[in-house]
């Protein structure tokens, strides 16, 4: 059963968005009440889907969720306390259309930037938490994302807290030019300093995690877990196909593939993630002095 569903993983939702929506949309079904699973095509009540952490109850497909939904699925009720919520990007190098893009991203995601940071408890274990926002320029990393992540790790290092981070990103944000590339080094430095304090960092890779985020803090966790079917890679599949002039095999760069190649510790369903994270946090808990 499980095996069967693994082979049915859809492609990256971004790539197949148009075709699947034109094919399956039915004019008689109110959008807000029903969703159609892009993997098994089952028609699902939206309320059932959200009760099931946005995982298809029929085939286990993981729907994309925003940062706030993830926080509510992960943090104990009422424990999340946000940090640096007001930091906003500016058009630092005068890149064309960037101001407009930022404005749209803020509207679409209802967030000020592509990552939400703070502290919380997971089954009573305190930790620092960052969650990237897929609806803000596909979670791309510019200077504000870099600064927020860096501040979070610095804070966690100072307070002796473990860090749990959910990644979703198209990579470094082109519109901030070289300054976004530099965030890879900056965040990696902060992760290293946190690590050198003997503190735990767990990353949860979600669909899609690519480019400069993969090549920095996403792959720097002490423990790296991934959501089933998540696309995780340095180069995107289209770029690779253009480079090697070949089609990539099914499942390439998916979470299960990464585990098979030794780059992911475990593929963990969203329904199990909170329990899994709590268990890891408890196994790393410092003994009371």
């Amino acid at each position: 059963m499980l095996k069967k569903s693994l082979f049915k993983r859809p492609k990256n939702e971004l790539e197949t968005y148009d075709s699947k929506h034109t094919k399956t949309a039915s004019p008689t079904v109110p959008d807000e009440m029903c969703s159609i699973c892009p993997s098994c095509h089952a028609t699902l009540f939206t309320s059932d889907l959200s009760d099931n952490h946005h995982v298809c109850p029929k085939c286990g497909h993981h729907f994309r969720v925003n940062a706030r939904q993830r926080i509510s699925m992960t943090a104990d009720d009422g424990t999340f306390s946000e940090m640096d919520a007001d930091l906003q990007s500016e058009n630092l190098i005068g890149f064309p259309h960037y101001d407009g893009k930022l404005k749209n991203a803020r509207l679409e995601s209802a967030e000020k930037e592509a990552v939400v940071c703070g502290t919380c408890e997971i089954d009573g274990f305190p930790c620092a938490l960052f969650v990237m926002e897929p609806y803000f320029m596909v979670g791309s990393m510019g200077t504000v994302v870099g600064e927020k992540i860096t501040r979070l790790f610095e804070y966690a290092a100072k307070e002796g807290l473990p860090v749990v981070g959910f990644t979703v990103s198209g990579g470094a944000r082109m519109q901030e030019g070289i300054l976004s590339l530099m965030q890879m080094a900056k965040t990696s430095g902060a992760v290293k300093r946190h690590s050198d304090e003997g503190l735990l960092y767990i990353t949860v890779l979600t669909d899609p995690t690519t480019g400069g985020v993969t090549a920095s803090f996403a792959m720097e966790g002490d423990v790296i877990i991934a959501e089933p079917g998540a696309l995780v890679g340095f180069a995107g599949p289209r770029v690779i196909e253009q480079t090697i002039r070949q089609k990539l095999p099914a499942g390439f760069q998916r979470a299960e593939f990464l585990q098979d190649k030794g780059f992911v510790d475990a593929v963990v369903s969203r329904l199990e993630q909170k329990r899994y994270l709590a268990k890891l946090l408890s196994l790393h808990a410092k003994e009371a002095e």
Partner: peptide, 21 residues
């Protein structure tokens, strides 16, 4: 960095990330 199948299979992202750290 090389954007090919072999590079992805052997963890291009992880290799660069580790160097940065």
């Amino acid at each position: 960095a090389y954007c090919g199948k072999s590079a992805e299979e052997r963890g291009q992202g992880e290799a660069i990330a580790e160097n940065l750290m």
